[in-house]
Design a protein around this nucleic acid. Structure first.
Length: 428
DNA sequence: CGAGTTTGACCGGCGC
DNA sequence: GCGCCGGTCAAACTCG
């Protein structure tokens, strides 16, 4: 920052009339050239070069800042992960009966299962080496050994119960004017069925973003209230998600995270949890008044996010924006940090100059909020998990979308939504 | 012509 | 074993 201000001061001095004779900086050769020729265009070119150099320096500073912010996010993520592991270990020691019951039902799965759901990440993360270095700074060598052992155990456990995880479902109830909810993914309809007890047909969709992606969703209108759209997601994506879908996935996975991590005392039936600080902070990215219902059968745990909770005010609307390639695709849901900071921002700021400034200001706000509000850490963790799962792939994905000449529109294959028109889902 | 949708047929799980 | 029901398949159809 000091470097930036000094450069600005330098530039101001050079801009002063009659002050172009004494330069000993990087811009001196350019300015002397322009003075020798005394040509106006050359003088302007010199100024532009100085500004270019200044922009480069500024870019370096901003890159460093972004790296720092990303590092802080990783630190927070790992600390939260560690705390949750510690919490689970202690709780499992205290209550063996509870744990054995959970094992029978396949519900003891901690964070990594949820990360697998909706493609939030896996054990072999690209940034694992980097993360490990950061973790050593935080936890120290002794704790790191414990943590690595825990991590390896979790990976083994993760593979063993993958089938159960794949069957985990997240069901979302929301009021919608349209027959599909914009979640950022591309879906291909493969069937429709009229279920017993509901005259409204249930549509079956398969994710068409990746080759043989196992994720499916069912969409059905509520029989009692046809304005309510029930969307049920099942499976885990085997491909990088677009920004919009990652935002959505982080929110839904936060709910499932709570469920699968055993943080709830649900015992076979269903549990409604509207006011848990950890969960509500995550869910608030969808709706501040959303209510979650947790239930599970023998093989298929389900989390229902009810976004139709009646105590919302009239302004509580979700604006599902149709993401496009040529503009900055704003999130479907407002998340603190959006997109991978290293690759995403330069891409965006090249198109929208003010975007970077807004994000840097946002970084300060978020940093302060994280410090003050512990519950926000949990929400941030779920969001960051989706962003840091595979940065390389995600950035490539983002780049491909931006390079596409035809324009990338994740909602383009949703005929129920009128083209070129943002649609809203009402939260009552 | 390719991609997506529609729709009847088919399959497997589950309860009786 | 039988029938019901949810989920999936695949051929026909539609659309851009």
């Amino acid at each position: 920052m000091e470097e930036k201000s000094s450069l600005k001061n330098l530039l101001k001095e050079e801009e002063r009339p009659g002050n172009g004779t004494d330069h000993n900086t990087m811009g001196s050769s350019v300015l002397s050239l322009s003075l020798n020729n005394s040509g106006q265009p050359l003088n302007q070119m010199g100024m532009l070069r100085i500004k270019l150099e200044e922009a480069k320096k500024e870019n370096e500073i901003l890159k460093a800042m972004l790296t720092q912010v990303n590092e802080h996010c990783t630190v927070l993520q790992n600390r939260i992960l560690f705390e949750m592991q510690q919490h689970q270990l202690s709780s499992s020691n205290k209550n063996n009966n509870h744990q054995s019951q959970g094992k029978i039902q396949g519900l003891e799965k901690p964070v990594l299962h949820t990360r697998q759901f909706l493609n939030i990440g896996d054990c072999s993360s690209v940034s694992e080496g980097y993360t490990e270095n950061v973790e050593k700074k935080i936890f120290g060598e002794g704790e790191m050994n414990t943590k690595i052992a825990l991590h390896e155990a979790k990976c083994i456990e993760d593979q063993a119960s993958e089938v159960t995880c794949r069957r985990a479902k997240v069901s979302i109830r929301a009021r919608s004017d349209f027959s599909l909810m914009g979640d950022g993914c591309q879906w291909r309809k493969y069937g429709q069925k009229t279920a017993k007890g509901n005259p409204c047909p249930r549509a079956y969709y398969r994710c068409s973003m990746g080759t043989a992606c196992p994720v499916r969703k069912q969409v059905q209108r509520c029989f009692k209230d046809e304005t309510v759209l029930i969307t049920t997601y099942e499976g885990s994506h085997n491909h990088p998600l677009p920004v919009a879908a990652r935002s959505f996935a982080s929110s839904t996975s936060a709910a499932l995270n709570m469920f699968l991590s055993g943080s709830l005392t649900s015992s076979g039936g269903s549990t409604t949890l509207p006011n848990s600080p950890l969960f509500s902070s995550s869910l608030s990215s969808i709706s501040p008044t959303a209510v979650a219902t947790f239930s599970h059968s023998a093989t298929c745990p389900t989390v229902t996010l009810d976004l139709t909770h009646p105590n919302n005010n009239t302004n509580n609307y979700l604006h599902f924006q149709r993401a496009t390639t040529t503009t900055t695709s704003h999130p479907l849901f407002p998340l603190p940090l959006h997109g991978h900071p290293h690759e995403g921002l330069p891409l965006l700021c090249s198109k929208v100059p003010t975007f970077l400034d807004k994000n840097l200001a946002l970084v300060d706000v978020v940093s302060e909020a994280i410090t003050k509000d512990p519950s926000l850490k949990a929400a941030l963790f779920s969001a960051i998990s989706s962003l840091t799962a595979d940065p390389q792939k995600n950035s490539n994905n983002l780049s491909q979308h931006s390079k596409s000449s035809s324009g990338y529109d994740p909602c383009s294959k949703m005929p129920a939504i009128p083209p070129h028109q943002p649609y809203t889902t009402e939260l009552i």
